[in-house]
Computed example of a mutant assay.
Amino acid sequence: MAAHAGELAVITGASTGIGYELAKIAAQDGYNLVICADEAEIEDAAHRLRQLGTTVEAVRADLGTEHGVSSLWDAIKDRRVDVLMANAGRGLGHGFLDQDFAAAKAVVDLNVTGTISLVHKIGRQMRDRNAGRILITGSITGFIPGAFQAVYNGTKAFLDSFSEALANELKDTKVTVTCLEPGPTETEFFRRANMLDTPVGQSNSKDDPTEVARAGYDAMQAGTRQVASGFMNKVQSVFAGIIPDAILAQMHRRMAEPKPGDQG
């Protein structure tokens, strides 16, 4: 019998990329799944995950809205959530003053407001029964002022800090909080963030989402508070605390500034 047969895992941003790989690992471990994303591909993901022999319920909802969070919460109903993997998020490239403000606000609404709203609901349930595991997808970029990705990096700085604070608040309980801090990963992120015209978007050295998800999942099961996937990302997180922010911002600019002549 699988290690977690019959237990329930809720995974957001699970249609593709890291979120899908997290859901796949959880399914292989025996969890029943409630998966959520704001796109039709979530149904395709659910179909593939059911082939692994577990129960999968797909919810299509925008977690950057109160209605979206409520829709997911309604789907969970009164079931016990053993694991929450809050992975939903979006990026936005190019200079802040050149961005549509509604799009920038949507990044904050999903990455920050939607995440903490869901964690608040499910976290209370976990605390009441003194059991549960929470994995929040932050980012290594949360340690770096994100020139030409300013709003996104700011939201990830919030999540990195929030995760550590919540873990401390729950340290005397059996509820654990882990923050996964990936670097650039080979997913749909850069296309959706309008960053295919940037050096980082065009790089061929991005991390494998399967390996990133495995690092996060294993750290969550071990109760580890933070995990930076990949050797270079671990090095980068260490040096981010040493190098002045102005230099970090310039370094980030070299990765994220659109190349002249390319189309955003």
Rank of each mutant, 00 (worst) to 15 (best):
K206L: 12
V34P: 08
G19Y: 05
L166G: 11
T210M: 15
P184Y: 12
I136H: 12
T155W: 01
D100W: 13
A165D: 07
P258V: 12
I247K: 12
V56W: 02
S163L: 05
V83N: 10
R127S: 13
L84M: 01
V235T: 14
R127Q: 15
I247E: 08
R60N: 06
E181F: 01
T176N: 08
G53W: 02
L72M: 03
N204R: 15
V34T: 10
S117F: 02
A37V: 08
V200H: 10
G123M: 14
Y31M: 03
L84N: 06
R50L: 00
Q263L: 15
D218W: 02
A58F: 08
F189H: 02
D44I: 03
G93R: 06
L196S: 14
G6N: 02
D128A: 11
T54F: 08
L97C: 09
T198V: 09
A9R: 02
I242E: 12
H47T: 09
M126S: 09
T187L: 11
K206W: 05
F96K: 06
E181L: 04
T187E: 01
K121L: 04
G183W: 05
W73C: 05
E181V: 01
E39G: 12
T141N: 10
F143P: 00
T55D: 15
H67R: 10
I134Q: 08
D262S: 13
L52C: 04
G95N: 13
P182G: 07
L49H: 05
E43W: 05
A157C: 10
T178V: 00
P258G: 13
T113V: 15
T115Y: 11
H67I: 05
Q226C: 13
T173L: 15
L33S: 03
R191I: 12
G6T: 07
S117C: 13
Q51A: 02
T198F: 10
G264I: 11
I25Q: 03
R50N: 08
P258C: 10
E257G: 01
L180T: 01
F190M: 14
